[in-house]
């Protein structure tokens, strides 16, 4: 992994400046459906293709942002502040 990733605050930087924060997930709102809760906690979609994910610019502004990246090619389609992906 040595692709360049654009931080919405700092611009394009080598990916080793960032910490990966995992897929963007939706948190269940109760414990009623145990299957839904455990799938949120322990399962990842691990899509081969476009994936929405969290990144933390740990060696930069130390802010979180979101990116849409193709997991097969590491092509980054878009980046945005939290919740800003189109």
């Amino acid at each position: 992994m040595s692709f360049l990733l654009e931080c919405p605050n700092c611009g394009r930087r080598p990916v080793d400046e960032y910490a990966y924060g995992g897929e963007v997930t939706v948190r269940p709102k109760s414990a009623d459906d145990a299957r839904a809760l455990f799938s949120y906690l322990y399962f990842r979609k691990n899509d081969a293709g476009a994936q929405r994910e969290w990144w933390f610019h740990s060696s930069g502004c130390r802010e979180w942002f979101q990116a849409e990246r193709d997991t097969r090619t590491n092509e980054v389609m878009q980046v945005a502040p939290p919740g800003g992906l189109t």
């Binding site: 933390f56 740990s58 130390r62 802010e63 979180w64 939290p82 919740g83």
Partner: peptide, 13 residues
Amino acid sequence: MEQWFTWWNAVWG
């Protein structure tokens, strides 16, 4: 913890 706190703050806005 800094990452954890700031992440949830980003999630919740």
